[in-house]
Design a protein around this nucleic acid. Sequence first.
DNA 1: ATGAAAGCGCTAACAC
DNA 2: GTGTTAGCGCTTTCAT
Lengths: 359, 359
Amino acid sequence: MSNGRAPTSHDVARLAGVSQSTVSLVFRGASSGRVGERTRRTVLDAARELGFRPNADARRLRVGGPRMVLIAVPDIVNPFFARVFTGARAVAREAGFQVVLSVQRDLDSVAADVAGQQIDAVLACSLEDGGRPLEDPVPAVVLDAEPPQGQGSVRFDIAPVLTELVDHLHRLGHRRIAHLRSDVRTATFRERTEAVDAACERHGMTRVHASCALDTGSAREAASALLAEHAGSGGRPGFTAVVCDDDVLSVGVYKAAADAGLAVPADLSVTGIDDVDLATAVTPELTTLHLPGEELGATGMRRLIARLERGAERGDGPRARAGQAAGARSGSAETETECVRLPARLLVRGSTAPPAAGG
Amino acid sequence: MSNGRAPTSHDVARLAGVSQSTVSLVFRGASSGRVGERTRRTVLDAARELGFRPNADARRLRVGGPRMVLIAVPDIVNPFFARVFTGARAVAREAGFQVVLSVQRDLDSVAADVAGQQIDAVLACSLEDGGRPLEDPVPAVVLDAEPPQGQGSVRFDIAPVLTELVDHLHRLGHRRIAHLRSDVRTATFRERTEAVDAACERHGMTRVHASCALDTGSAREAASALLAEHAGSGGRPGFTAVVCDDDVLSVGVYKAAADAGLAVPADLSVTGIDDVDLATAVTPELTTLHLPGEELGATGMRRLIARLERGAERGDGPRARAGQAAGARSGSAETETECVRLPARLLVRGSTAPPAAGG
DNA sequence: ATGAAAGCGCTAACAC
DNA sequence: GTGTTAGCGCTTTCAT
């Protein structure tokens, strides 16, 4: 029964009857040509017996580790965020960065994760409004959210495409629509509401709305309530289309329509936003806005890395560590705090013609 | 233009005209009552000017950090694995562990991620067959896969429920079924094939099969090919039900059926495995096997932590670090290498009656 | 209230 | 081939 301390290379050296540096040599793999085969085995055996593992913290303190970037998303089960993470992770690894994931909804929690780890940069996706910026002078880029202050950001340019969607509905003859909103308080959802409202206003379309949590069950309930509340003539609802803030909500609306004995899209048209796999699984396939999540993550990470490299070149970059990033040498001269907008794309899938008027 | 080295507490001390230990005091937050307000400000200003951030590696080398567990999944976009991760992560954090995610398909890649980070334990989900066990003496538990050697494992007990599913189909009158397999070479999919084969054998049911990649598109193609190849009488397929290895595949079969002008479930019954959100989004809702992914992750993590604690109690635990885990004090005396099986559950949703014989 | 000094476990010259 | 030695940047007594 040894004491609670983890065995060190010194312990191994003592047991093997060699010096500590020999142990180091063996474990660094630099033993070829340097350490005798016999000694090597002795050391390895002693290490195994003690359960020795080199202390990564000490090693990194000495030689420096690869640079690390933290990617924060509010919910990794949501396939949209998973895609953002995947896109960002790929770019980071390509550039030689280690990636650490932080599943947090607000910046303060992210900051807590940043402390205590040797993080060189932060990419934060879809944070809730109102968090204070990171105290640490860690370069950060925010995705799909209001940039805290001088931080760069990458977002979707949803408004014009959402407008296009409403235009499309209007052109098909829809005059009264419902807007099923997400109750998540992030910038993107505020923008969606503004865009829908403005487009409806412009066309003189009647608009009712409700908001609910970002899951199918809540959407089903909210949509049912909306249908009950705004019942129109002839058992038809008082609106002919439901514009949803998210594909997940649209599925709930499909369910609610079925519950109410309404056919989609014959009696009610439904649209979503995101274009996750659900969108093509439902029948009829969902008309939605495609938001390229992987590209969002990748673009954000590229900007972040570019900033890091630029800082390093200027020679004033804090946290210049040993590992050197490969690739990702972008000569662009973007403004650091610029807000890049990625285009969304309207995907018209199911028929969205309104039911015959006065039916 | 300073040199490339990151500023240290020494640099800050020099600029602020104080000693290095004072800087340390200030940044540790222990400054209350120890460091004068005036000195504090000076130090903070100097730090800000230099862009100083305390080196986390050095700090952890000195005081020890919280213990870290690495969770490995093959694909974080897949909501099933995301759920496993989420369940495992929750348990780990509850017990005071830091969590790091590794998205890798095989054990060797996971091992590479383990090296270089101060990992105390590994939870690896759904690894491909044939990887060698970790060289490092790091406690590991594998999920949903063959345990490498003496490692513990947690898996689903799918066979009996899959048998139940086939029994169910047989009872409804199905006599000729197709099995759409995943081509992923992991233990769980091998077991699924064995279970379906055995059950069909026992009932004397005719069975055809195909395998494809784990996505809807591939499944759609494979199912279309299967339908074309095994065309029966009267435009009906040569089988009345398709048992799929995964919900994602089932959606492809729904599509292929629609392509072929077949109604689900009137002309063709379809079942899945997993019970992800897709299962209830499609029409008719999918009959499937519910696999509690979060519970899989949580159970695996509990076992892993129990092993860690046990080792620590015996006093021979390698890597005993400073942070102490809270909670998770399980007095159980399970065998470490035991293979726990979690129950799956049959969810009968859509009607799965076969079309009238000789239709 | 602040400073001096001794390491944490490891790597990397440099000696022998 | 193997041992000696000097730190990496930080925390933490112990003096002052």
